[in-house]
Design a protein around this nucleic acid. Structure first.
Length: 112
RNA sequence: UGAGCAAACUGAGCAAUUGCGGACAUUAAUGCUGAAAGGCUUUGCCCGAGGAAAGUCCGAGCUCCAAAGGGCAGGAUAACGGCUAACGGCCGCCGGGGGCGACCCUAGGGAAAGUGCAACAGAAAUAUACCGCCUAAUUUUUAGGUAAGGGUGGAAAGGCGAGGUAAGAGCUCACCAGCGUAUAGGAGACUAUACGGCUCUGUAAACCCUAUCCGGAGCAACACCGCAGAGAGACAUUUUGUAUUUGCCCGAUACGUCUCGAGAAGGUGGCACUGAGCUGUAAUGGUAACAUUCAGCCAAGAUAGAUGAUUGCUUUUAACAGAACUCGGCUUAUAGGUUUGGUCAUAAA
RNA sequence: GGAGACGUAUCGAAGUGGUCAUAACGGGGCGCACUCGAAAUGCGUUUGCCUUCACGGGCACGAGAGUUCGAAUCUCUCCGUCUCCG
């Protein structure tokens, strides 16, 4: 059950932006909200502010890869949305992973 | 050796582990689900971004609107000859401009069909006498001639020299520029030579004229499937009206109309392909673009949208940058590197 | 993905080939009047950058080329912003 379930609809994203708790760092923003099912769902946002198509694709890939790493350690029953920032395109992927871990711990959905 | 020109190519590579998208394979390997078709998971094997994928500036295919209609309006192109499915593209060539040269740039039809515009300055802007010069009368000045000189302007009626003259003027002559005619060469634009009369402002990326071409909208087009609401009332019977056909006039097609109420979400095809297909130190024709033939190949196809991460090595630690219906161009962005062919300068032989 | 529209002072905008940026006109800012004080109203003024002690001069209409004697205006190529199409 390592399949990644993604959020797709605009409504779901807006629900997290308005009701979810936000954890902000210089290169990543995390929104967390518990959902009713026992699944872990993820959404990734890369807006046009970040850069052109190549930069946005890279940011999305790096976030997706880091998420795959920490997937086992996440409590089920939560919706997560990661928003990439301008810095995300420049820093290394390992750093994104460590930042993500910190944010997840802060949010209390990380189990070691 | 230095400087410079043109063309073509490349666009980090290799290995290991792991991860993602797709096609195919089943006799059935693995399990689950289902009445079945099939779906999901696993397995095997193969494929998986660019030279610009970008901008959307042109041209097409394809789909619908009447298998594409008429007129007006509107738009595009612009020396000449070719190539192409087509083009505003490409090739060759001519004219003009630049460079010592290799070579580069060039929206380059018509201003003698007509109309408009040319601010300010200047006497005068397509017609003219302000100053000056000359002649006559007179000696404040007036009349006539004159575009050689001054000044203004982007532009002042060919340029320059000689003759000529009262002063001047293509008035006459030589050379140059422009126009016309003839001859020769060329497929043609045009070039060369000879002769002739004669001297014409610029602007068409102002209207316009000439020639050629153009119907419109776009894959969010369009076709099909299923779900939900879903019904209720009133009016009318063929004239309107609405929508589409870029703008207007015809013509054509589709729709009964109005009120109340409710709702506007999803899937499949189109779509990935035997094609204006790709590759070739191939052959033939052609200066070339390109065409024909031959041989080989089938080569991403997502739908919130697939290429990442880690490690090792190489030389520099890699620029611009990510397909979305598909092609042919153009334009713009782009680190570094490779190859080929010319040019100039200097030195040596 | 496709189809369009627009870029001019601090803001909204007019100017569509010369004298034209006096950057019209409106809003904003500042000052004055009115008021006990304010608001509203009225009047005046301020409004880009570089250079100069100052007078003045140059560059500026998103950027860069071209046409023209002359471009905010006409043409081309880029850049940015906004709108529409299920």
């Amino acid at each position: 059950m390592n399949k990644i379930i993604t959020l797709k609809k605009n409504k779901e994203f807006n629900r997290l932006y308005s009701k979810g708790k936000a954890y902000v760092s210089k290169s990543l923003i995390l929104y967390v909200l518990p959902n009713r099912s026992c699944e872990k769902r993820i959404g990734i946002t890369t807006s046009k502010k970040i850069g052109k198509a190549v930069d946005r694709n890279r940011a999305r890939r790096v976030i997706k890869e880091s998420y795959r790493e920490v997937l086992k350690n996440i409590k089920p029953g939560y919706d997560l949305v990661f928003v990439a920032r301008k810095k995300t395109t420049r820093i290394k992927s390992t750093k994104v992973l460590s930042i993500m871990k910190e944010q997840l711990k802060e949010a209390g959905v990380f189990i070691s």
